[in-house]
Design a protein around this nucleic acid. Structure first.
Lengths: 271, 271
DNA sequence: AGTTGCAACAGGGA
DNA sequence: CTCCCTGTTGCAAC
């Protein structure tokens, strides 16, 4: 489940490691992860040099000079791993870049990931990245005013709102549990039913939760560019087996379905 | 509640009474019931002769020679009344046609009706009539095959399907109660959950219910072109006050909300 | 654990 | 008892 914290760290590491590297070889084992014919992808990537690598929501966006961008989404799970020349590569990957110095990058999707390449002029037409909403860790963009502005007029449940990437970019079904528990909000709580004071708390918890997870290197069961685990532990670990209790009140964590996906809540703390 | 039976009878009566009559005068008291500026409506109607008058779904469609059509929907209630020259007109109406022989037609909407006029060439662009679905009393059109064809792939509740004018034209929130009770189907019953044998029954009851009501001159509380009441009595009369019982089993008729509108069902007979 | 697109559903307004 | 529009929700697909 790579969400904003994992992808932000991955982008930072890729930016440090790959900037200036020239793509000498591309291997695509599963062309359906691309956004077009394999030949077009190769044409956009081969011979190009990685420049600034950033993240936006659950996407890593790398500039390829000249004239292209490489866009990576790990979907429902996967890793992007960096390998020094001569290191043993993992057996399983869908896409591999080899650089002119012999280093390489393997990208593995457990399920439904995207490795896209676009011309620089077409970046704005790449809807999955172009239509992303607010970046929660950008303090100049994610202000309380901006947050309430996108909330304006919305009437649905708070979980489905926060998970919609067009509203806020980067929250998936793992961190939403943390955020809502931290804010003491039930996932089915109607937006129109949340008091301003509580909305302020929610705003703060979105930022703080994602920032803390990013600072801790992401989730404890995810891997970064160097195949290192993160140190952020989710509070409801084991809830799927009915073994988790609320760290605040000790009540048993309950599983329910909300916005189409499973949710885990403390029935006493979250209203 | 003028639905298919009332409108079919109204069209038949108008066809008999108005064919050949020339529109000598038009009075529009409430221009918002028109589909354009009042002057345009007058231009399309004045001096024209009524020709064939037919019905389709809840609409009466009259040919005006040359080159126009008059389209009438009584919405949530109302009457179209014919008056011989010299008769006293009702006080309340939104639109009145006066014919060259002194006879007249008054149209009264209780709520949300439409009196539209279009050029013959624009009839196909009049979406509210052009997009109507199957005509249940047209035996060559409303076959069981055609019925199952529009049902193909649908997964919602049966009531919302039958009330959608794009599927079958003419069923409103009155006759749907009769049809579903006759077919022993609960309004919320999933389409995918209805056995073929029961679907056959439903098909038959759509036809038979609407045909019987048409033959009886429509609902007992509606008025035809000659201000005469119909003779079709709904089975759940008084259900809104909790006073109706099922004619079959004697259980109290229950009120519930289905597809956004009230429904009345026998809790034991309709599953 | 992800996103898209579509059908189904509900609410408000004319 | 009408219809249309819009936003929301649920589902199947990739």
């Amino acid at each position: 489940m790579p969400e904003l914290p994992e992808m932000a760290n991955l982008a930072r590491q890729m930016n440090r490691e790959l900037k200036g590297k020239v793509v000498a070889g591309v291997e695509v084992r599963q062309p359906k992860v691309l956004n077009g014919p394999e030949e077009q992808f190769r044409g956009l990537v081969l011979g190009k040099a990685f420049d600034a690598v950033r993240s936006k929501g659950k996407w890593v966006m790398a500039e390829l000079l000249p004239d292209a961008h490489f866009l990576l989404s790990l979907g429902m799970g996967g890793e992007a791993l960096y390998h020094r020349a001569g290191e043993v590569l993992p057996e399983r990957y869908q896409v591999k870049f080899t650089f002119s110095d012999g280093d390489s990058l393997t990208i593995n999707f457990w399920w439904f990931g995207y490795a896209h390449a676009v011309r620089a002029a077409d970046l704005g037409a790449h809807r999955m990245t172009a239509e992303l909403g607010l970046s929660p860790l950008d303090d100049s963009e994610f202000t309380y005013d901006a947050f309430t502005a996108v909330l304006e007029g919305r009437k649905g449940g708070i979980k489905s709102f926060l998970m919609d990437q067009k509203n806020i970019a980067g929250i998936g079904n793992v961190y939403i549990q943390e955020i809502l528990w931290n804010a003491r909000l039930h996932p089915n709580r109607r937006i129109t039913d949340i008091e301003p004071a509580q909305m302020q708390v929610l705003f703060k918890e979105i930022r703080d939760t994602l920032r803390k997870a990013t600072d801790l290197g992401g989730l404890i069961y995810e891997r970064d560019l160097y195949n290192q685990k993160g140190r952020y532990e989710i509070y409801y670990l084991g809830a799927a087996d009915g073994k988790a209790v609320c760290p605040m009140c000790g009540a048993k964590i309950e599983k329910l379905k909300s916005a189409g996906t499973p949710s885990y809540i403390c029935p006493t703390c979250q209203k």
